[in-house]
């Protein structure tokens, strides 16, 4: 419990991948015991491979997707194993950061 705010520490994992890989990332979240996650389809930006267009009119699979999950720290190792392995061959980026939540039971 964070002493100042009365919050519970968690780990937030954010992944930006091709829309085609969103399903496997969702599988990885589920395998790590996540009970929910957030997905934002059709995100745009500039990365290692140059600019990426956001929403495509007739293709949901080949735009980028941002997926976010918050997990207790003890559930993260396996997820990171999987994401590292996936991103060794697939385009995408991974961000891991501390997070604090007010209702920890929502994340277990």
């Amino acid at each position: 419990m964070d002493e100042r705010w009365g919050l519970t520490p968690m780990v937030k994992v954010e992944v930006v991948v091709s829309g085609e890989d969103a399903e496997v990332v969702a599988d990885l979240f589920a395998t790590a015991g996540a009970v929910g996650f957030t997905a934002v389809a059709n995100v745009s930006g500039v990365g290692h491979g140059g600019a990426h267009q956001g929403r495509l009119a007739f293709n949901d699979k080949n735009a980028l997707a941002l997926l976010m999950v918050v997990l207790p720290p003890d559930g993260v190792d396996g997820l990171l194993d999987g994401l590292r392995s996936l991103l060794s061959e697939r385009p995408g980026v991974l961000f891991v950061s501390d997070a604090f939540v007010s209702r920890p039971e929502y994340f277990r």
């Binding site: 990885l28 999987g82 994401l83």
Partner: peptide, 11 residues
């Protein structure tokens, strides 16, 4: 780990 297996299967 289980997560690693999921990624290996995908690759």
């Amino acid at each position: 780990s289980a997560g690693h297996v999921v990624a290996l299967v995908e690759r």
